[in-house]
Amino acid sequence: MIEVLFFARLRETLDLARLALELAEPTTVGALKAQLAARGPSWHALFAGRQVLAAVNQELADDATPIRPGDEVAFFPPATGG
């Protein structure tokens, strides 16, 4: 299992803050994005549209970053704090 978290605009668009996913074998952020984008039109639009950042275990990640069972993955827009 992995836990996938969504923040800000993504959480509102999907109406979903977290999702538990079965993970049969290790994957990558890029492959997980493609898998999520295939869940439906709103998912596809989200990942195909404006920039989406990812974190694995609370560290910024890119498409090549590996994901293993037990990891916490998050997707969110570019930061706008401060």
């Binding site: 923040f7 605009r9 974190a55 910024l60 969110f76 930061a79 706008t80 704090g81 401060g82």
Partner: peptide, 9 residues
Amino acid sequence: LKTEAPFWK
């Protein structure tokens, strides 16, 4: 902080 810390307004 503005570009890397995960805050959203």
